[in-house]
Design a binder for these strands. Sequence first.
DNA 1: CATGAATGAGACTTCATTCAT
DNA 2: GATGAATGAAGTCTCATTCAT
Lengths: 198, 198, 198, 198
Amino acid sequence: MPKVVKGYRKQAMDTIMESASRLFFESGYQESSMDDIAREIGVTKGTLYLYFKNKEELLYEVCRRNTNLLEDNLDKLVTEDILESAKSFFKAELELPEHLRFHWIFALGEINKNQRVRKILLESYENYVKIISSRLEVLKERGLISGDADTRKLSLTMIALHNGIMMSMMQGLSEADASEIFEAGIRNILKNSSLYKN
Amino acid sequence: MPKVVKGYRKQAMDTIMESASRLFFESGYQESSMDDIAREIGVTKGTLYLYFKNKEELLYEVCRRNTNLLEDNLDKLVTEDILESAKSFFKAELELPEHLRFHWIFALGEINKNQRVRKILLESYENYVKIISSRLEVLKERGLISGDADTRKLSLTMIALHNGIMMSMMQGLSEADASEIFEAGIRNILKNSSLYKN
Amino acid sequence: MPKVVKGYRKQAMDTIMESASRLFFESGYQESSMDDIAREIGVTKGTLYLYFKNKEELLYEVCRRNTNLLEDNLDKLVTEDILESAKSFFKAELELPEHLRFHWIFALGEINKNQRVRKILLESYENYVKIISSRLEVLKERGLISGDADTRKLSLTMIALHNGIMMSMMQGLSEADASEIFEAGIRNILKNSSLYKN
Amino acid sequence: MPKVVKGYRKQAMDTIMESASRLFFESGYQESSMDDIAREIGVTKGTLYLYFKNKEELLYEVCRRNTNLLEDNLDKLVTEDILESAKSFFKAELELPEHLRFHWIFALGEINKNQRVRKILLESYENYVKIISSRLEVLKERGLISGDADTRKLSLTMIALHNGIMMSMMQGLSEADASEIFEAGIRNILKNSSLYKN
DNA sequence: CATGAATGAGACTTCATTCAT
DNA sequence: GATGAATGAAGTCTCATTCAT
C-alpha cells in the first residue's frame, strides 16, 4: 500500500488537496465522499484523517490553497502595463486546470454554507482590489489614466468583468471569444477611466 | 392538518418551489433535506412527493422556474433605450429576494453535477444573448452605436459585467458601488462600441 | 370516475380480489401497493378501504376465495373414476390463469407470515385429502384397488405428486411433460396401491 | 464493538448469509429488514453493506449458496442404488434447518419478482434432472429398470414427488408419513419404470 | 504510517391508512 | 360511494468518523 508521498507531510497534504480540489469542483463538495478522494490518490479513507482533522477542514485548506495560488498568480503577473499584463494573465489562466481556473465560482457556492470559507473569499476579494488598485495608482501618477479616476472602482469593474467572463466560460463561451471581450473590455475601461470617478 | 394550498395543485407546487429555492440558495441543495423544506412550509415530507417525484426533480423545476422568471424580467425590462433600461433592470434586480437575484450563481454550482440543470442554464444564457443583441441591432440601425460593432460581443460583455458584479455583491460589494460601476460600464461599452467588431 | 361495479358490493369485492390476486401472484404481496391494485381496476386507493378493512384483510379474502375456488373445482371434477377425472382435472387446471393455478404455491410463501392464511391452507389441505380419500374408499369397496391400501396415504401421495408437478411447471416444465407424468404417476399409484398400506 | 467474524471476509459473508437465509424463510424477504438481519448477528446495518452491495444482492447470494448446498447434497448422497440413497437423502434432509430444507419453496416465491433468482432456480432444476437421470442410466444399463424407460421422465417424477412432499410438510404432514410415502413412491416409480417411456 | 472493519446518524423514498369534501 | 390530499412510520442506503491492528 503506497504512502501518499514518502515521508514528506507537506507534500502528502498537497497531493490530497490537489485531488480533493479536482473532485470538489467536478462533483461538488457534498457529492465527493472521503472514499472517493482517497481512492483517487490510491490510499484508504483512514489515511486522510492523518492529515486533515475532518472533511470540512480539508475543504477549508483546499480553498485557502487555491485562493493563495490564484492571488500569487495575480500578484506576479499583473504589472503596471495593465493592458499587456491583463492579456498574459488571462492566457495563463486558460492553462490552469478547470478546478483552479473556476475555483472562485466553486467557492462562491460554498460561501453561504461555511463561515471560514466565506472569510477567505472576502479577504481575497479585497486583496485583489488592493493589488490592482496599487498598479493603477502608478499609472495615474504617470498620467496614463485620467487624474480623477477612482482606481478602486476601476479595479472593481475589471474584476467583475473578469469573473463574469469566467462564468460565461463555464456556460460554454469559447476561449477565443472570452479572450477577445476581456481584452477589449480592459482596454475600454482604461481608455475611459474618467467615467469612473468618485 | 394543513394543506399546502387549498385545492390548487399549481399553487401548491409553486409554494413548495419558492421555499425550496430559498433553502437551496441559503444552505445549498445537498444540505437542504426534504424534511427541512417540508417543515418550512408546515407540511410533512411525504407531501412533497405528491408534487415532485423526487428531490432532483424538485431542483430541476426550481431552476426552470427561476430561470424563466429572470428571463421574463429581462425581456420585459430591457428596451431599445439600453442605458436607461439597464439602470431600471438593475434596480429591479435589487428588489428581488437573494435566492432569485443570485440564482444564476447558485445554479452554476450545480451545472457540473446535473445534466438537466446544465441544459436549462446553457439555453437561458443563449436567450439572454439573443434578447440583448436584438435590442442592440435596433440601436445600430438608428446609428446610435457604431455601424461595425459586433452586437453579439457587446451582449456577451454586458452579460459578463452584470454577472461579475453579482458575484462581487455576494462577496460584499455594496449596492451603491454595484449600481454605479454597472451603469458606468454599460455606458462605456455603448460609447465605445466600435471596440467590439468582428 | 368509474365505480368498481355499480351498486353490487359483492361484485365490487370480487373485482378487487381478482385484480389483487393477479398482482399478488405476479409481483408478490408486499411488492403490490394498494395504489397498484387500485390503478389496475381504475379506482383510487381510498375506494379499496370501502370494501376491505386493510391490506391484510384483502390478502386473507383473496386466499380464502382462491382456496375455495380450487377446492370446489376438485370436488366437482374428481369422481370415482379417479384416473379419468385426474386427467380432466389437470386439463381444467391448465386453463386457469396462473394466479389461480399456482395459488397454492404462492400462498405457501405467506404461510409463515400470516396465521390466518396458514389456517386456511391447512384446512384446505385436509379437505383435499378427505375428498380424494372418500373417492378412493368407493374404489376399494368395489375391489378396484387393493383391499389393504391406506387410502389416506394414497391421497397424500397423489396430492404431493400434483403439487410437485405444479412447482416444476413454475420452473419451466412443459404442459405436455407435466400432463404425461401426472397421468402416469396417478395410474402407477392406483395400480400398485398395495404398496401404500398402514 | 463486535466484528462479524474476526478477519475473514468469506466467513463474515457466510455468517450474514446464514442469518439472512433463516430470517428470509421465517418472515419473508420483504418483511425482513436489514436492521433485523444485522441485529440477528449483533452488528449494525451499515456493516452488512460492507459485504453486500444491497439487499437484493444479499438475497441473490443467499439463494445461490443454498441452491449450491442442496445440489452438492444431492450429488453426494444419490448413488446408483437409487432406492437406498433416496432414503438416506431424505433422512439427511430432515436434519437440515427449515430454511435450507424448504429453500426451494421459499425461492419459488421470489421467482416472479427477481430475474437473477429465477435463473439460479431454473439452472438448478435442470441440474437435478441431469444428476438423477445419469444415475438412472446406469441402472438401465444393468437391466435394473425397464430398457425402454425414459430416464428423464422418471427423474421429473421423482423430483415432483419429492417437492410435493416438502410442500405437504410445510402444511403439517408428519415426518413419518412423509418418509413413508416418499420411499413407497420412489420404489413404485422404479418398479414400474416401463410406464415412463418416450 | 496506513489500513479496513465497524458504527450510527441522517438522508431519500415508499406506502398503508385516514379523512374532509 | 368515491376521491385525493396528507400523514408518519418504516425501510434502504450512504458516509464521515473512529479505532484496533
